[in-house]
Computed example of a mutant assay.
Amino acid sequence: MKADALARAWQAQSLLVGYPDEQLYARLGLLDRVAATLDDPVGGPLRRLVAHLARTAPARAAADYVATFDHRKRCCLFLTYYAHGDTRKRGMALLRLKQTYAAAGLRLVDDELPDHLAVLLEYAATDPRQGRALLAEHRAAIELLRLALRDAESPWAGVLDSVSATLPPLGADLRAAVARLAAEGPPEEQVGLAPFAPPEYMPDPRLTPQGASR
């Protein structure tokens, strides 16, 4: 895909994986038109989610979103959690992401975590070359989330299918990493986080912010 198509895809994915609030509902028509400009493996799953949201009452969609991402540990949208759990390594990973965004001029609001998938996708849309490399770093977590959403028969699985279609196919090493993460789960060390990241960047990873800022 060309850089402009990747930017459109990642921006649309970023919005659609966010909390289904009034702003998202107001953009469904635009998102459908954007998705229609993309190749079917990328745009098709997005159009299906748009259609699902369009025929679903906002309150019901919001409840489904919370039940999926806030109450299912396997469907965590905070990608560093899969590899690091609540450990010092996660604090370091969050801080590095925040610094990467700041260098590109992307500022987060106080209630946003830098490893939320919507935030990574928004960053990728602003700089497709660097963004693709950053998404590739978190490829195993993205795949694990995609599989968990498919197992749950979630309509949001389509967003992850679309993200996956913008990235290189999984190699043997990444498949092994996905299998290892699925079998072992994230580490659970609960101490020593503060020196590596401010406390506001270390909430319970199962609590999803209400979408990324726009």
Results as ranks from 00 to 15, higher is better:
Val163Trp: 01
Pro205Val: 06
Val191Asn: 09
Arg180Ser: 15
Leu174Cys: 14
Gln190Phe: 02
Val178Leu: 04
Arg175Gln: 14
Phe196Leu: 14
Tyr201Cys: 12
Pro195Val: 08
Leu193Phe: 03
Thr208Val: 15
Ser162His: 06
Pro209Lys: 08
Tyr201Trp: 13
Met202Gly: 12
Ala194His: 06
Tyr201Asn: 12
Ala157Tyr: 00
Leu193Asp: 02
Met202His: 12
Pro186Ser: 08
Ala172Cys: 08
Pro205Phe: 03
Glu200His: 15
Pro199Trp: 00
Ala176Trp: 01
Val191Met: 08
Thr166Phe: 05
Pro199Val: 09
Leu181Met: 07
Arg175Met: 08
Gly171Ile: 04
Tyr201Lys: 06
Arg175Val: 03
Trp156Arg: 04
Leu207Ala: 15
Pro186Asp: 05
Asp204Arg: 10
Tyr201Asp: 14
Gly171Leu: 05
Val159Thr: 07
Pro205Ile: 03
Leu207Cys: 14
Val159Cys: 11
Pro198Glu: 14
Ser162Glu: 05
Ala179Tyr: 00
Val191Phe: 11
Pro203Asn: 11
Glu189Gln: 07
Gln190His: 05
Thr166Tyr: 03
Pro168Lys: 11
Gly158Gln: 06
Glu188Thr: 09
Gln190Ser: 12
Pro205Lys: 07
Glu188Ile: 00
Thr208Trp: 06
Gly171His: 06
Arg180His: 14
Pro203Thr: 12
Gln190Ala: 13
Gln190Tyr: 02
Pro209Tyr: 04
Ala179Asn: 00
Leu167Phe: 07
Leu181His: 01
Leu207Gln: 13
Ala157Ser: 13
Pro186His: 01
Ala172Ile: 10
Gly185Cys: 00
Pro195Tyr: 05
Ala165Val: 09
Glu200Pro: 13
Ala165Gly: 07
Asp161Thr: 08
Pro186Met: 02
Pro209Arg: 10
Ala194Trp: 06
Trp156Ala: 08
Ala194Pro: 08
Pro203Cys: 11
Leu181Val: 01
Ala197Phe: 07
Leu170Gln: 11
Ala165Tyr: 04
Pro169Val: 06
Arg175His: 09
Val159Lys: 03
Ala182Ile: 01
Leu160Thr: 08
Met202Val: 09
Pro187Leu: 00
Arg180Leu: 15
Ala172Glu: 15
Arg206Thr: 14
Ala197His: 07
Asp204Trp: 04
Tyr201Phe: 13
Pro186Tyr: 01
Arg175Gly: 13
Gly192Cys: 10
Leu167Asp: 12
Leu167Asn: 11
Val191Ser: 14
Leu160Gln: 04
Leu160Glu: 01
Thr208Cys: 15
Val178Cys: 11
Ala197Ser: 13
Pro209Val: 07
Ser164Arg: 10
Pro169Asn: 10
Arg180Lys: 11
Gly185Met: 00
Arg206Asp: 09
Glu189His: 02
Leu207Lys: 14
Ala172Ser: 14
Pro199Asn: 02
Gly185Trp: 00
Ala194Met: 12
Ala197Gly: 08
Ala177Glu: 11
Pro198Tyr: 04
Leu193Tyr: 03
Tyr201Val: 03
Ala157Asn: 02
Arg175Lys: 12
Gly158Arg: 10
Leu181Trp: 00
Pro203His: 10
Asp173Gln: 12
Glu189Ser: 08
Ala176Met: 05
Ala194Gly: 12
Phe196Ala: 14
Ala194Asn: 11
